[in-house]
Design a protein around this nucleic acid. Structure first.
Length: 570
RNA sequence: GGCGAGGUAGCUCAGCUGGUUAGAGCGCACGACUCAUAAUCGUGAGGUCGAGAGUUCAAGUCUCUCCCUCGCCA
């Protein structure tokens, strides 16, 4: 039994995530976690909301809420949405909670001891009316180069030149529009990443279990040269710049910058899990305290790769403490909406809560796994969604369950029938299943989700092929015993179909296993002798057809959803 | 504008370090079957791999140029 630590990129607190976010980190992490649990491994799947930073403050302000209260509310909303998709976090924590605050302050202190943090004075724009320092991109004004009127403080959208906020003519606050600004000196802590470059490069070189997408992004950053980056901000909402409860002199009104404390949240959330479950978080994160046998797997979208391959490692490696660092890293491309990006304002795309309004989580889980944006960006379309759901879930899987259970009910009184001899058809089925089962496990293990889903689908289809060969409905007329072996094998096969479906569509799989009377503790990934697998159900056991597993998506549904959420014309 | 990703059957995508008749699923056509959610099973027709040039005995798979799409910086 291996110990596997799994984290999904932390969703930002600001609003419910859309399907692309789900597809690119939380869902595949969950599928992988479920698969590894079924394999009997000791899995810890951790996620959390990333709560600090200016966007959270502004969103709270526009909702006329205290930031903490806003985050409390949003955290619950995201937790609920995750539950709706059956995301099986062992813990869904918060970067604003005490463990993360303590850890963030700890890392800052240790990094400073190692000479990797320096205090430097910067000039930043302060908005008197907003009563706050403005991040560069929240200052706008006229570009000194091209005269564009809404240039940002970091760069001009029109001519593309990089700018400093102080370059802008007639600058104003993007937050309030106020022109009552001034430049103030403010000291900030900087992480001296330049000193870490060689160490990080060596670490990246040594990381073999990363896909090319992750490696190339990491090298791109390293090749361009790391920069020393500010890790504090003049904000109220965040991890206080303090040590042992005492604020650093001159930093009483400053907090750590969100990019520094967010990834530490993986560890913080594990600590939260430990407190809630009487667990030992250090045995997962400290290689000197038992984590040396842990395999750590991270899931993220491609926008997050640099933070996980360079920035966060700078923190971890820089501390020179025995922290666990990532072993396997799975990065996803974008799920696009008809080839373009999801957009709230333009009514393009579906958000997690809306998706659940329409259909249960399993439908989405199947589509997003079978169509995961692994090798390249992948386009969501209603038409594609409709065809995958109807074919794979309703017709191939759902109909199989229905046809065989109903046939069994009308011909064999709804119990696993007795009689008949294992024959050539059963040998054929067992042979096919043996290879496909291995392939499916291999693909799940390798985190190749499209291929894994494809193999699962192939195994489902195999059930229908077997029935075509066995044709119990024909044999029943002349030789009920011959029909019985067909039905009995088909029922046993259904247990395999459902068990391997569990990582992707856990609820539907549970419904099927319930119908077959499979005990909760007997639902692990199928293993052992194939023939045993296909003869395990006790003869005489009652099996009842469940309600329709998956309803079909009608053309009228697609029309209505296109109208509501956008589509080809959106 | 800079950077990145990509352009492979009607659609969504696979194609590792170049090498037999370029693959899958969906869709489509035809056939079979009738237990089942008009479901299922079988067979088949569809691409010369964005365009051009080059390297090579051999290129979708390497090089260059161009066109287009998408994303990030914004």
């Amino acid at each position: 039994m291996a110990r596997i630590l799994i984290t999904s990129a932390l969703p930002y607190i600001n609003g419910v995530k859309h399907l692309g976010n789900l597809a690119g980190s939380m869902l595949p992490a969950d599928v992988y976690a479920r698969f590894q649990r079924l394999r009997g491994h000791d899995v810890l799947y951790i996620c959390a909301t990333d709560e600090h930073g200016t966007p959270a403050e502004l969103a709270a302000a526009s909702s006329h809420m205290d930031v903490r209260a806003y985050c409390d509310e949003q955290h619950e909303i995201q937790k609920t949405a995750g539950d709706g998709f059956s995301l099986s976090y062992d813990y869904f924590g918060r970067t604003s909670n005490a463990p993360n605050i303590e850890l963030t302050q700890h890392f800052a202190a240790v990094l400073e001891e190692k000479g990797l943090i320096e205090e430097r004075v910067e000039h930043q724009v302060f908005s008197i009316d907003d009563d706050r320092f403005l991040p560069d991109r929240y200052v706008e004004g006229i570009c000194p180069h091209c005269g564009f009127e809404r240039a940002r403080g970091d760069q001009c959208d029109n001519c593309g030149r990089l700018l400093e906020p102080t370059d802008l003519k007639e600058p104003y606050s993007k937050i309030s529009g106020s022109k009552n600004l001034e430049v103030r000196e403010t000291a900030h802590l900087h992480l001296i990443q330049t000193k870490m470059e060689a160490k990080i490069r060596a670490w990246v070189d040594a990381s073999t279990a990363w896909p090319s997408l992750a490696k190339s992004i990491a090298y791109k950053w390293l090749d361009e040269g790391l920069r020393d980056r500010s890790i504090t901000r003049d904000l109220k909402w965040g991890v206080p710049v303090a040590k042992d409860g005492v604020a650093r002199p001159g930093f009483e009104t400053k907090v750590f910058y969100v990019w520094f404390d967010a990834p530490i949240g993986y560890i913080g959330a594990t600590w939260e899990w430990a407190e809630a479950n009487n667990g030992d978080w250090e045995s997962w994160w400290r290689t000197d305290k038992g984590a040396d046998d842990v395999t750590y797997v991270q899931f993220m979208g491609k926008d997050n790769v640099a933070f996980h391959t360079v920035s966060f490692p700078a923190t971890i490696l820089g501390s020179e403490e025995p922290w666990k660092s990532v072993d396997k890293l799975k990065a996803f491309n974008w799920l696009t909406w008809y080839g373009g990006k999801f957009s709230t304002s333009e009514n393009r795309g579906v958000f997690m809560d809306q998706a659940l309004d329409i259909l249960p989580g399993d439908y989405w889980r199947w589509y997003l796994t079978a169509n995961a944006p692994e090798g390249s960006d992948s386009a969501f379309t209603w038409e594609h969604f409709q065809s995958l759901i109807n074919t794979d879930l309703a017709n191939v899987l759902g109909n199989y369950v229905n046809r065989i259970l109903r046939f069994n009910k009308s011909r064999f009184e709804g119990v696993v029938p007795e009689g008949g001899e294992w024959g050539a058809d059963e040998d054929w089925l067992a042979g096919e299943l043996e290879t496909r089962l291995k392939d499916a496990a291999t693909h799940f293990e390798a985190m190749e989700f499209r291929k894994a889903a494809g193999e699962v689908r192939a195994i489902w289809a195999l059930g229908n092929e077997y029935l075509t060969r066995a044709e119990p409905w024909t044999k029943f007329k002349t030789d009920p015993a011959a029909a019985a072996i067909g039905v009995r094998t088909a029922l046993n096969y259904m247990t395999v179909m459902a068990k391997i479906a569990q990582p992707v569509i856990p609820n539907a799989a549970a419904t099927i296993l319930d119908a077959l009377g499979i005990a909760e503790d007997a639902r692990d990934w199928p293993k052992g002798d194939i023939r045993d697998m296909l003869t395990a159900l006790p003869v005489g056991q009652s099996v009842e057809p469940p309600e329709v597993l998956f309803k079909k998506i009608e053309d009228t549904d697609v029309e209505a959803w296109t109208e509501r959420f956008g589509g080809a014309e959106g």
